[in-house]
Write a protein that binds this DNA or RNA. Structure first.
Length: 639
RNA sequence: GCACCCAUGGCUCAAUGGAUAGAGCAGCUGACUUCUAAUCAGCAGGUUGGGCGUUCGAGUCGCUCUGGGUGCGCCA
C-alpha cells in the first residue's frame, strides 16, 4: 500500500497542479471508517478549500474530473460528505499486487542509528521498570532495522555512580567481605538487591556514614583499591546478569559504554571546547554561580551549571560528552574489547580507557551515527531537553532530526500488589493511587521473578491443553508464551501512560495480550500443516469476485488492513510511538480470527475459493511473522 | 513558584484534525461429533473532567478552571 500511495500522490499532483497549488507532503491518505466509503480516502479538497477560498465540494468535483482516468487499478472515485475523495480499487489488482509484493525487500537507507537503552545501574537485579525500557528500546531497534537502517545498540554502564558505591560500601565496610568471598556468591545481583536496601536504610540519616560513602565513592572514581577493584567486579558481574535476563527476552546489545572511561579519557574536555567555542557554554554572571560554566536552558530560562566553581563537572556534562561522541562530533574515541558472547557467537564489546588486543577493524566502527535515540524515562526530560537544545544549536540544520529522547512514563505498582509482595510502604505512599517503584527501597518485582511466575502460569495452561507433549516441549512452549505475554504487555500501552502494575494484568493470557497474537499465528500454521505443501500452489489466477458478498467484504477488509504494514511501521517510528505497532498487530489478529470462524478453509470444496482463502492465510502469516519479529514475540509450535 | 505530562464505559486502554468514539477485562446470552474455544458472535455499558474559542469538521489544536502525576541542587 505504501507504494500504491506514493504512485497515487505523484499522479494526482501531475494531474491537478496546473489548477491547484498543492505539495506532495500535504497529501494524506487514510483508510475510510466504512467499506461503503471506498478503500482509500483523501481530504485534498478541504486543504485546497482554504488556499483557494472555494467550497470543498466544488473543488472535489473538479479534482475528480481531472484524475478520474489516471489510475489503472482504480475502478471508481466518488466524492462524499462535503469533500472526501474516496477511491474504489480494482480488488483483483489490489490482491495480486499485495500478494506478489509480500516479500519485497525494503531498501537500505544508508543511515546509521544508535539506540541507547537498558542502562541499568550495575548494582542489583533488573526489575519491571527496567523491563519497560528494554522492551521499548529493543522494539524500536527492530523497527528501525526493518525499515532499512543500520542500528548500533548501546547500553550505558554507570560504573562510578553512587548506587554502585553504596553496595561496595555494603560489602567492604558493612559486611567486611573480600573480593574472593564476593566472587563465590551465587546470584550476586539478587544478593546485592537485599544489601542495597539495607545500606539505604542504615544511611538514611547517618551523617558519618554518608561521609564515609562519599569518600569511598571518590576512591572508586580515582581507581583506588580495594574499592575500585570491588566496584569493577560487581559492575561487570551484575551487568552480565542483566544481559542474561534480557537475552531470555530476545533483547541484545552491541556495545557497553562505561562511565569510568568517559571520565578517564576526559571526553568532557573536547565537548567543553566545542561548547565554549560556539558560545553555548559560558561563564555565568550570576553572583551565586561565580566561576561556574553554564548553559542557558531556553525553555525555562534557567542557567544549568555544567562546570562547578571548583572545576569539576556535573552529571549532565558526561551525558553531553557521550551524546556528542555518539553523533560523531568528536575526534576522540574509546578503546574496545570483547565482553560477552551470545550462543550464536555474536559479541558484545565494551569500552576501555587504553589499548587492548581486540582487532582494530572493529574499533573504528562504533559511534558516528546519523541519528541517536536515548531511551530513558520521562523523569529525565529536563536534562535530555538540554542535550537536544545543544544538538539543535550545533547542527543549525533545523529540519533534520538527529536526536530523540525516546521517553516513556514509569512503571508503578498497585497498592494491592505492593501489599501482596509484603513491601514496607511509607504512610505518605499509602495515600497515593499507586506505589512508585524503587530499587533503593526494594519496592519492585525482579525481572527474573516475573518471568518465572509467568512461565509457571503458562506451564499449567499448556499442560492442560497438550497432554500428549513431552516435558521439554511443554517447557519450551511455556517459555515462549511467557516471553510473548511480557513483551506485549510492556509495549502495548502508550508511552505517555503510567503502567500501574498488577499481576492479574501481566498474567492475563486472553484478549488483548501476547498469547492471543501467538494463538492466531499458531492456528494459521496448524491449518497450513493440514493443507500440506502440495496444495499451496497459489497462481496468478485468483479471482476475488468469486466470493459471496459478505465474504468478499470480510476478505477485503482483512486485505486492506494487511496492506498497511510498511505504512504503520513508518508511522510508529515517525511518531516515537511503539505501541502503534502492537495495536496494529492486534487488529490483524482480530480480523483474521473473525474471518476464520466464518469461513472454512481445509474443507472448502470449491478449489478457487479455497485458493483465495489460502492466499489470505499466507498473507496474514507473512505479516504476522514480520511483526512478531519486530515485537520480539516468539512463535510457539503449538498452544 | 516555574516547566512538562495525564484525565475517554464499572476497570485497563485505542482512536494520524475527518465520516456513526473503538477494543479487552468484568457482567449477561449463545457457538466446540466440523481447520486449536488462549477463539468467535451477540446484549448491556459514553454529555471523551468543566467552560470558552479556532475550524467546513475537535476526544485530538489554543486559552482557562478543576483534579492527578513528574521534573526543577555547585547530588548522580
Amino acid at each position: 500500500m505504501k507504494y500504491i500511495q506514493e504512485t497515487m500522490k505523484e499522479s494526482i499532483i501531475t494531474a491537478i497542479n496546473e489548477k491547484f497549488d498543492i505539495q506532495k507532503d500535504e497529501i494524506e491518505f487514510s483508510i475510510p471508517p466504512k467499506r461503503d466509503f471506498g478503500d482509500l480516502s483523501t481530504t485534498i479538497p478541504f486543504i485546497l478549500a482554504k488556499k483557494h477560498k472555494q467550497k470543498p465540494f466544488l473543488i472535489g468535483k473538479e479534482i475528480i474530473e481531472l484524475i478520474k482516468d489516471k489510475f489503472s487499478f482504480v475502478d471508481d472515485i466518488k466524492l462524499a460528505n462535503g469533500g472526501f475523495i474516496n477511491f474504489y480499487f480494482n480488488k483483483n489488482y489490489f490482491l495480486k499486487d499485495i500478494f506478489s509484493n509480500k516479500d519485497r525487500a525494503i531498501e537500505k537507507t544508508g543511515r546509521k542509528i544508535i539506540v541507547e537503552h537498558t542502562s541499568i545501574n550495575p548494582n542489583k537485579s533488573a526489575h519491571i521498570g527496567h523491563l519497560r525500557n528494554s522492551c521499548l528500546g529493543d522494539t524500536l531497534v527492530k523497527a528501525l532495522e526493518y525499515t532499512g537502517n543500520e542500528v548500533e545498540i548501546q547500553n550505558y554502564i554507570d560504573d562510578t555512580g553512587i548506587q554502585l558505591a553504596d553496595v561496595v560500601w555494603g560489602v567492604l565496610k558493612h559486611q567486611n567481605k573480600t573480593l574472593d568471598e564476593i566472587k563465590k556468591i551465587d546470584n550476586l545481583s539478587s544478593y546485592l538487591w537485599k544489601l542495597y536496601t539495607e545500606v539505604h536504610k542504615l544511611s538514611d540519616d547517618d551523617g558519618i556514614l554518608l561521609e564515609q560513602k562519599k569518600t569511598l565513592h571518590q576512591r572508586i572514581e580515582d581507581k583506588k583499591n580495594p574499592e575500585y577493584e570491588m566496584g569493577d567486579f560487581i559492575s561487570k558481574a551484575v551487568t552480565t546478569d542483566h544481559i542474561n535476563v534480557m537475552n531470555k527476552l530476545g533483547i541484545r546489545y552491541d556495545l557497553l559504554i562505561k562511565e569510568s572511561d568517559i571520565i578517564t579519557l576526559d571526553f568532557f574536555k573536547e565537548a567543553s571546547e566545542i561548547l565554549k567555542k560556539t558560545g553555548i557554554m559560558y561563564l555565568s554572571d550570576d553572583p551565586k554561580k561565580e566561576n561556574c560554566w553554564v548553559i542557558k536552558y531556553k525553555k525555562e530560562n534557567i542557567e544549568k551549571i555544567i562546570i562547578r566553581s571548583n572545576g569539576t563537572i556535573t552529571y549532565i556534562g558526561k551525558d553531553i560528552a557521550y551524546t556528542l561522541w555518539k553523533i560523531g562530533h568528536f575526534t576522540k574515541d574509546f578503546f574496545y574489547t570483547a565482553f560477552y558472547k551470545y550462543e550464536d557467537e555474536k559479541t558484545i564489546y565494551i569500552s576501555e580507557d587504553k589499548k587492548t588486543d581486540t582487532d582494530d577493524k572493529l574499533m573504528n566502527n562504533f559511534g558516528k551515527a546519523d541519528m541517536v535515540y536515548n531511551v530513558i524515562d520521562t523523569r529525565q526530560s529536563y536534562l535530555q531537553n538540554i542535550i537536544l537544545q545543544i544538538l539543535n544549536t550545533l547542527s543549525n540544520n533545523t529540519n533534520s532530526r538527529n536526536f530523540s529522547h525516546f521517553s516513556y512514563e514509569m512503571v508503578a505498582l498497585t497498592q494491592n500488589c505492593a501489599k501482596e509482595m509484603g513491601f514496607d510502604i511509607s504512610e505518605e505512599q499509602k495515600e497515593k493511587s499507586f506505589v512508585e517503584v524503587s530499587g533503593r527501597k526494594g519496592i519492585a518485582i525482579k525481572a527474573d521473578d516475573l518471568i518465572d511466575r509467568m512461565k509457571n502460569k503458562a506451564l499449567i495452561e499448556v499442560e492442560k491443553r497438550n497432554t500428549d507433549l513431552k516435558k521439554e516441549q511443554i517447557n519450551s512452549i511455556a517459555e515462549k508464551i511467557a516471553i510473548g505475554a511480557l513483551r506485549y504487555f510492556m509495549i502495548k500501552y502508550n508511552s505517555k501512560s503510567l503502567i500501574v502494575f498488577d499481576f492479574d494484568e501481566v498474567l492475563a493470557f486472553e484478549g488483548d495480550t501476547g498469547p492471543y497474537l501467538q494463538y492466531t499465528l499458531v492456528r494459521i500454521n496448524s491449518i497450513l500443516n493440514k493443507i500440506g505443501d502440495d496444495n499451496l500452489n497459489i497462481g496468478d489466477n485468483l479471482n476475488i469476485d468469486l466470493l459471496e458478498k459478505d465474504e468478499l467484504s470480510d476478505y477485503y477488509n482483512n486485505l486492506l488492513n494487511l496492506s498497511l504494514l510498511e505504512h504503520q511501521i513508518d508511522f510508529a517510528i515517525k511518531s516515537d510511538e511503539i505501541s502503534l505497532i502492537s495495536n496494529y498487530t492486534y487488529s490483524i489478529c482480530q480480523k483474521f480470527n473473525n474471518y476464520y470462524h466464518k469461513y472454512p478453509i481445509v474443507s472448502e470444496k470449491n478449489k478457487e475459493i479455497k485458493n483465495l482463502r489460502i492466499s489470505l492465510l499466507l498473507l496474514t502469516k507473512n505479516r504476522l511473522e514480520k511483526l512478531f519479529s519486530i515485537l520480539g514475540i516468539p512463535v510457539p509450535e503449538r498452544m
